[in-house]
Amino acid sequence: MSIHDDVEALRRIPLFTKVEPSKLKLMAFASERASYQPGEILFNQGDLADAAYIILDGTADVMVNTPSGPLKVAEMGRDAFVGEIGILCDIPRTATIIAREPLTTLKITKELFFRMITDFPSIAIEVMRVLAQRLEHTTEQLRDAVADHD
């Protein structure tokens, strides 16, 4: 497992597809690998967000606290980008992430992420584009849902 694998993984994340390879390499070099055993927690719902994670290998469960106890809402696998909303919006974690299988991630700290955005506007523009697309997507879903409701 070398830095080249990490760069490849970063490239597969939509947010970073269009970023120059040398920038991705810098990002990979400045990031740390973080491995988890099954059952170990990446972060808890309500924690302060300090990093985002790219899953390099393994799967993780996304859990949300409900009045009737924790509820699994999704499953994340290879190449998923987890926790980026928290560091971008500076809000507490909206869900708990638990490793289901032995999990290897690339941990991108909030500081690093913001450094990359300020230093390389191309990344910032890409982030904006992806977020806007997501918003558009959500709005569309909402529109459909409202239409269905009627």
Partner: peptide, 9 residues
């Protein structure tokens, strides 16, 4: 010894 890099816990 050293903490192992990449071991989250």
């Amino acid at each position: 010894g050293r903490l192992v890099f990449g071991q989250a816990q």
